[in-house]
Write a protein that binds this DNA or RNA. Structure first.
Length: 379
RNA sequence: GGACGGGUGGCCGAGCGGUUAAUGGCAACAGGCUGUAAACCUGUCGCUCCUUGGAGCUACGGAGGUUCGAAUCCUCCCCCGUCCA
């Protein structure tokens, strides 16, 4: 077993929520955890010092597809691995590129062996296989590796979803076979997570989960969510496999979600989440606050001297007004992105801290109730 | 005083007889973004009325004129540039 250990420290007696500690070679992570997305080995707009220091981020996400295409896994390996390359002291989870099977569907081709992508950079073709994506992630030195999967678009037929799920399952087995082999040859630092798929069909997801459990992985992911389906469906899909995935292992809901959704996933037994919303929306003018969303470009903030969120302790909220941030946004100033991203990440991490605190103190159901009754936008 | 070149919707700027309420860009206003092809994308953007679809009104410096029809052609006038005196 790789150096990834999951320890449950508290459980909610009324929901499936739990609080835990995830021990990695690059530090211990309190769960439930939100992982900011740093696709190209950077969380756009922030320095690693901002993230690890001020914000207290313990684990980041990076992307195998993007880093494979540029600068390439061998270059990163040669420079001492991803941690050293990007000067990141804490843990890193790398996505396999499975999401790009979805998002780059116009320029890729799926076969039983893997996926062929045409690079957006130079048009060159790159083949991703279950084995090659494991190799790339090992070259990066990731703490958590993800298997190659197919993230199908929504909606798809049951027939296609079934075929796709079986392909993902086969890829997971191939990835694990390759990984176990390498593990026997020399110690492997990173843990490999398989991914439950099955589109929006609970029967397929259950079957997928059951088969994946046989791999005895250190953690399990639930993928294929938030691809355009109605919100309640995503939660239903997570519920469908909750009792199948071992409770002793961390569960990772990939690519979710909005602030109000985070506790919903936790209530359904999820321990790890990641999402581009706090970072991308920050850059696009949407700030998440304890009172709801602030769309900073709105005229109502033109001369608003208040901070983005009066209850936030981040540098942005401590120092700058909504009026100033709006000015920076409308002016296209780069500082805007940095300040906005910093705030949104702080907000997401605060939500996760609140959730964890509520679980630890036994008040998670009350916390959930409060979140559900709140408005999504600032009044 | 003379010779050219100009005056178009909040701004810049195209159009140079009908398909033009008038291309574009900017600004403004609003919406979207969920394992990042994203510091991105979409919509609205003269006024009034009605339900979509439309109906009416007012508009291309001003006033006349030519024409079935003018932002586009003609005349005069008013402004603004550049150059020559």
């Amino acid at each position: 077993m790789p150096s990834l250990k999951f320890e449950i420290v508290a459980e909610c007696p009324h929901t499936r929520a739990r609080a835990g500690l995830l021990h990695t070679a690059h530090g211990t992570i309190e769960t439930p955890v939100f992982m900011p997305v740093g696709t190209q080995a950077t969380v756009k707009g922030l320095t690693q010092r901002d993230l690890a220091g001020d914000l207290g981020v313990k684990i980041l996400l990076a992307n195998t597809y993007h880093l494979y295409v540029r600068p390439g896994p061998e270059l990163i390996r040669g420079l001492g691995g991803l941690h050293r390359f990007m000067s990141w002291p804490n843990a890193i989870l790398t996505d396999s590129g499975g999401y790009q099977v979805f998002s780059l569907r116009g320029i890729r081709k799926i076969s039983q062996h893997g996926v062929v992508f045409q690079s957006r950079l130079d048009g060159a073709l790159h083949t991703f296989t279950p084995q090659s994506t494991v190799d790339a992630q090992l070259a990066f030195g990731s703490d958590i590796l993800m298997v190659l999967d197919e993230c199908p678009e929504y909606p798809v037929s049951h027939e296609y979803a079934r075929e796709s799920m079986h392909r993902t399952l086969a890829w997971a087995r191939a990835a694990f076979a390759h990984y176990r082999l390498l593990e026997q040859q020399s110690p492997v630092a990173g843990a490999l997570f398989p991914i439950v798929q099955g589109s929006m069909f609970a029967d397929l997801r259950r079957q997928c989960a059951e088969d994946l459990v046989a791999l005895d992985a250190s953690g399990y992911a639930v993928g294929g969510l938030s691809v355009g389906e109605p919100r309640p469906l995503s939660l239903e899909m997570v519920e469908s496999t909750e009792t199948i995935l071992p409770r002793s292992r961390p569960r990772y809901a990939m690519g979710v979600g909005m602030p109000a959704e985070l506790p919903e996933y936790v209530a359904r037994g999820i321990d790890m989440m990641d999402c581009v919303l706090p970072t991308r929306n920050a850059r696009n003018g949407c700030l998440f606050t304890s009172a709801g969303r602030v769309i900073i470009k709105q005229a109502r903030y033109r001369d608003d001297s208040r901070p983005v969120d009066e209850n936030c302790r981040c540098y942005t909220c401590n120092e700058y007004s909504r009026a100033y941030l709006r000015h920076l946004f409308l002016s296209g100033e780069i500082l805007y992105a940095a300040l906005a991203t910093r705030h949104n990440i702080q907000r997401y991490l605060d939500i996760m801290r609140e959730i964890r605190q509520a679980i630890m103190s036994g008040e998670f159901p009350e916390y959930l109730k409060t979140v559900r009754s709140a408005s999504p936008d600032v009044d």
